[in-house]
Amino acid sequence: MKIKEHQLGLHFLFILTVLVLLFPLVYALSNSFKTLNDAFNNVFSLIPREFTLQNYIHVFTRLDFMRIVGNTFFISTTVTIFKIITSLLAAYSLVFFNFKGKNTLYFILLSTMFIPFTVTMIPNYLTISSWGLGDSLIGVLIPQLADVLGIFLLRQSMRGIPRSLIEYAQLEGASTYNIITGIVIPLIRPNIISTGILFFVNSWNEYVWPVLILKTKSKFTLSLALQMFISSEGGTDFTIAMAVSVMTMIIPITLYLIFQRYILDTFTTSGVK
């Protein structure tokens, strides 16, 4: 009997957490189908008084939405792949090689996480535009090809791999490439995935840097499109902003739902022992 109450209490806690976390999403979804008037005057009801697609229609007629999604997707995927590869290599070097100044190098790299982004913004803008990459997708993604956080996470997880395993493989004559792809990557796959998600989502929602670089509407990313509907002087068109928000969420959420099983599986069956 006691155990049952115990479980009930736990479920109550988790359901409450889920409700608190998901309420804003449901709120956004419901408001994206409301008229502005409805949104202002029908605050409580999550069901629109008059269901309208007008907000979505407006966004689709004003923006080349598929293109914007494509741009965002291109930037986020490229950034994620490069960040993973560069971090993987650096982390491998940190864990399995010994060289002078290793710890100092690591420490310096880690400290850069604490530099406010304002420091790099303008100099990088000048660099990018001196390369003639202003107003281009490449210009947005180039400074983001490496990330300390990735080195940090992958290093943490690689340290869980027994050294003897690597040494044994080396004795067997396996090349470093084979060791990385054959031993390291499979062993730390869940960590690679969680780092990848982090990179993808961050890049997907990045809004300060692309604003600086991109000018032409055909090159906009989703978070820039969102900002077109937010204005302090004219007022934010809440329902349209919510429609854009819903559309910015759809792709990461779908990706997550598709891969969720796989992601969670790798999390739970990971072989790091």
Binding site: R62, Q227, M228, F229, S231, E233, G234, G235, D237, I240
Partner: peptide, 10 residues
């Protein structure tokens, strides 16, 4: 310009 959609962007 600074004209968001709600403020003359169109």
């Amino acid at each position: 310009h600074v004209n968001a959609e709600t403020q003359g962007g169109i």
